[in-house]
Design a protein around this nucleic acid. Structure first.
Lengths: 244, 244
DNA sequence: ACCGGATAATAAGTATGACTAAATGCGTTG
DNA sequence: CAACGCATTTAGTCATACTTATTATCCGGT
């Protein structure tokens, strides 16, 4: 009458071995939370029950909860249990939370919000970078550009060069907060781009636009760099959203 | 010859009871890490040793480590131990990490970085808010402004009104990412302001400048709102940094 | 002398079970 | 009916045993 192991059929995803058990649990729960499978306010089953149902120890489960709590997704209190917090308290710009969000189908609103933020941050970062970049950094960006040209953006090497270009530009700002923030967002958005690439072919060669940006940074022309970066992001956005 | 309890004299700070033991440990270690007491790459003592030295269980210590790892401050691997990660991997915009940073004397560089980021984000947010704010939100901001005028900014009520004003403005952008980010930074910077207030009296009544911002938002005048917000932040910066 | 694979030592990871403490809610009592 | 206190529930903490991943070492082969 009852199956010998568990009932649901949804065991914990242990495919990524680099995450330990607690990491896998946190990831699974994290995705379930940000995708709305567990609504805010929902109190999840007690530690003992959850551990038993999933054939894991309380230890592993509790450590997973600590991770989620550290990212503002849940809140634990004695007797009350562990409940999903209001989304306004989530650390949505946390790298993991962002990754979990984009693991499933992220809402259009979430994508829009992120791109709006990118359009605020990255052009400003480009403008600052144009003023502060060192010669070494400029050379590095130039090299990355050559690599992008040599290998296409379809190849892993080309993609690495692209990432290198943007990372170096960010570092040139010298602003740790800016670097951290922009890197996080870029990483998250990259998944979307890769994900959506199945549907639509890249309609445009991004290399010339990168060159414009590079030249502006080379010239120390802040406003031009800002404009070039804005253009770049808008093109990326157009690639994702079907134009009209 | 040996003192009966521990040797160092630095026990774990349990003054904040809302944090559980693991939370207190995480906070203590977190502060030690971001203030550079433990340098990047440093491998901290093994779980058993640390637990024993501080008279806590491995469980509590491990949960603390999970919290720190969730914020990118440390990295644990079997046999290798738990080591402080490179600062470039820290989630420096995480609310807790930011709070821990400002717990001690934050470096001037950190403050500069944050204000530079504020100058990028908040004026842009104000511009967006000016275009999207609802009537209700506008009314709320107006009310907050009245409260600020009634009670002075020195009083808790006035400060609450100020916070209310800015929070409502942020919400008016409708951008969750923007709200989360700006709220986090504001909260962190508030400590600095409060902290520094001992040294210098508030040299200027911020109310008129708030009114300018409010009027711009009321008119739906984006550029004006942007400029007003920028002015506000620059004044805040001037309050902290001795002018010249 | 050097390379490479077995092996041992180490530290984190997981599991279990017992006990503590803090909320909450309920039931009793004034 | 309200306030108080107690019982219950659930997370928090502790202790211990055992497992697994990883690194370093050692040994033998080339």
């Amino acid at each position: 009458m009852s199956r010998s192991k568990e009932q649901g059929g949804d065991a914990i995803d242990r495919s990524d071995k680099s995450l330990r058990l607690h990491g896998s649990i946190a990831r699974d729960l994290g995705i379930a939370i940000v995708t709305g499978k567990y609504p805010p306010g929902h109190v999840l089953t007690s530690e003992v029950d959850f551990a038993e149902q999933n054939h894991i120890s309380r230890t592993a489960y509790r450590e997973a909860i600590r991770i989620l709590a550290a990212k503002g997704l849940v809140e634990s209190r004695p007797k009350a249990g562990t409940k999903i917090t209001d989304p306004s308290r989530w650390h949505i710009l946390d790298p993991d939370v962002l990754a979990w969000t984009f693991e499933g189908e992220p809402s259009q609103a979430a994508i829009d919000d992120l791109f709006e933020l990118r359009l605020i941050i990255e052009p400003a970062a480009a403008e600052i970078a144009a003023k502060r970049r060192s010669g070494t950094q400029l050379a590095q960006m130039g090299h990355a550009l050559e690599e992008m040209a040599k290998h296409t953006l379809a190849s892993p090497l080309g993609q690495a060069a692209d990432q290198n270009f943007h990372t170096t530009l960010l570092k040139a700002t010298g602003n740790m907060a800016l670097i951290s923030l922009a890197s996080t967002i870029s990483a998250a958005v990259r998944w979307t781009t890769i994900y959506k690439q199945r549907k639509r072919k890249l309609p445009r060669d991004p290399l010339p636009d990168h060159r414009v940006l590079f030249d502006a940074v080379a010239d120390g022309n802040g406003p031009a760099a800002r404009a070039a970066m804005q253009n770049l992001i808008e093109l990326a956005l157009a690639d994702i959203n079907p134009p009209a």
